[in-house]
Write a protein that binds this DNA or RNA. Structure first.
Lengths: 354, 354
DNA sequence: GTGAAAGCGCTAACAT
DNA sequence: ATGTTAGCGCTTTCAC
């Protein structure tokens, strides 16, 4: 412990030069300001030797720029957040910009608080994965609105708030959901069902829409069920109860589109308990095949999932959003049709029905 | 978009008061400085109405404190990082302190860069999960050393650098590894093996030691194998090759202690391929039981793992480290024997051998 | 080629 | 009870 940083003034004293000269030289402006090559060398050498590091606060204050962007998102514990973050950091790092992160920890008031503190810290720009409230849940978006309306540029990731957000980078959820559901149908499903959280975010709303697009197109409207979970916990008994009811009503779906990753694993585990026999399709002659699962997400615990997975390009989402943010910070004007960027998703089929 | 923040001076002009008075009143020091109650009310009302928010940069500069701590860790994509982060944020939030995060993205030079930029931003304190180099990998720890030796207090989490780190909060890895290995032995394993990454970090070194403690105590030294992976990728063919060799040599272990989470899942999936029959223990009379697995970690993809798991108290690690950091920031002196805090780990047995 | 001076927005000691 | 003043450490314009 010990060494306080040397200041520009102190360095100036050591060199018997003025702070101004040194500041210019170290900023690489020595050329344009015609500081003697020898002087520049001396400055650099001494600065290095004494370990001079400019005070970032003072510099930011003077220049009106912090070289820091803020990121607010609801929950670190979801794996997809990590991937978004990796994308953000990759871009930020290559521009020498720091990333300040605050998570809302699944609590909308924490989101508001975090947004406000971040804005106070004079960040150059803001990336936001908005909080996902349940449909019907009270959710005040003043802080988001305030943030979006401030001078500081901002970009939403993965979902956005229509009417509030102007810039966003999201996935092609509706289309991907439709394609995934079409795969289920193509694989022979006649009773595809939708399982998801009942969250009021664009992402999930669009997935459900995409599913329904496919159902309607295939003329399966009457035979398709859906379950919208009203609790955050994927281990809640709701899914089991739903499956039990469907089974009792002789309506057990032969395929599922599941809105999120963990939910799909949970569903698979429940279905296995319902029909503990082998894979169904493996021993020929088995009367009832196990239902097919399609899901958003791609996490696989080191073995094939047997599912249809929609690979969400999270890292790309993060990267593109950050690039967009830097464009905005640089003052670029983005035409209306490019304000919401939509990234395609890849579908991976691991059902192995060769 | 649009509204720039109003400054204290401007607010003062509106109120026909001096900036100083307002600053004091808004800081809650109105009482001690005996500012008229009515004046205080007016100040507060107007500040609110005009949406005054103090400029954090200027404030930090003047006070020599940023109310921000920095966190540097190697990789966001590991699930355990999320838990540590949750602990950190919980404590930081309740103190009104912001958390600035930078990840080294599995690259030791990024770690150095991140440490330097964070230190430049005048953070009040630093939390560090040091980069984990492979044994033998070139790793310059100058930046870490610099950071640790600066005036800014710092605390390491999960692992530390002996000789450099002074404050850390870590798990009781050696003891937990010994206990886990003892469980394997108690469950009848006579050829327990150790599988882990060959990383030069205290955490993993201690786990291996703990394993060996148990082996030695049980007199199984000769019949115990180990594999130290020299690649970050858990999907590399190394594990498979190791298992194949062992099988060929008639030395396939009947139990494994695995240093990390994902690795254990990988191992299980490989073992299943090796002996694809049912659970072994289920159909009585089966000659060869499937090997037991004990592992550090607790991730279970929604169904019982059948393993012995060492629950790592990551959130607590994060919390305790942050609390310790705040103590240091407050100027508390921590006695030598309390500088490295060791947190116990819980062992969860899901082998279901009733 | 280099330096002087002003000032970013705030706080805290010192006046009144 | 409130105001004045002097910076925190840096950048930038303008002057020499």
């Amino acid at each position: 412990m010990g060494k306080r940083n040397i200041t520009l003034k102190e360095l100036a004293a050591v060199l018997s030069l003025s702070p101004a000269t040194i500041s210019l030289a170290l900023d690489g402006k020595g050329e344009t300001y015609r500081i003697a090559a020898e002087t520049r060398r001396r400055i650099e050498e001494t600065a290095n030797r004494l370990g001079y590091r400019p005070n970032h606060l003072a510099r930011s204050m003077r220049r009106g720029k912090t070289d820091t962007i803020g990121v607010v998102f609801p929950d670190v514990s979801e794996a997809y957040m990590n991937r978004i973050l990796a994308g953000i950091e990759a871009v930020a790092l290559e521009r020498g910009v720091s990333v300040m992160i605050a998570t809302s920890s699944l609590d909308s008031s924490a989101e508001a608080r975090n947004l406000d503190t971040l804005m106070d810290r004079s960040i150059d720009g803001l990336l936001l994965v908005p909080y996902a409230p349940f449909r019907g849940e009270a959710y005040k978006n003043d802080a988001v609105r305030r943030a979006m309306e401030s001078v500081i540029p901002s970009v939403c990731i993965d979902r956005y708030l229509p009417g509030i957000t102007t810039h966003a980078v999201i996935g092609a959820d509706r289309e991907a959901a439709r394609l995934a559901a079409e795969r289920l149908i193509a694989a022979g499903c006649r009773r595809p069902a939708y399982l998801g959280f009942d969250l009021a975010i664009t992402t999930l709303v669009e997935r459900r829409r995409g599913f329904n697009d496919a159902i309607k197109a295939a003329g399966l409207t009457g035979s398709s069920d859906e379950k919208l979970l009203t609790e955050r916990n994927p281990d809640s008994p709701d899914i089991r109860e739903w499956l039990t009811e469907l089974t009792a009503a002789q309506r057990l779906p032969d395929g599922f589109l599941v809105s999120t990753d963990g939910l799909a694993l949970k569903l698979r585990s429940l279905l296995r308990k319902l029909s503990p026999a082998g894979r169904g399709s493996r021993r020929s002659g088995t009367r009832r095949k196990r239902p097919l699962i399609a899901r958003f997400g791609e996490d696989s615990p080191y073995f094939p999932t047997g599912m249809i997975s929609v690979r969400q390009p999270h890292e790309e989402l993060g990267r593109r959003a950050t690039e967009k943010l830097f464009a905005l910070i640089a003052g670029e004007v983005i035409p209306k049709e490019k304000q919401i960027e939509i990234i395609d998703m890849e579908i991976i089929d691991e059902t192995q029905h060769h």
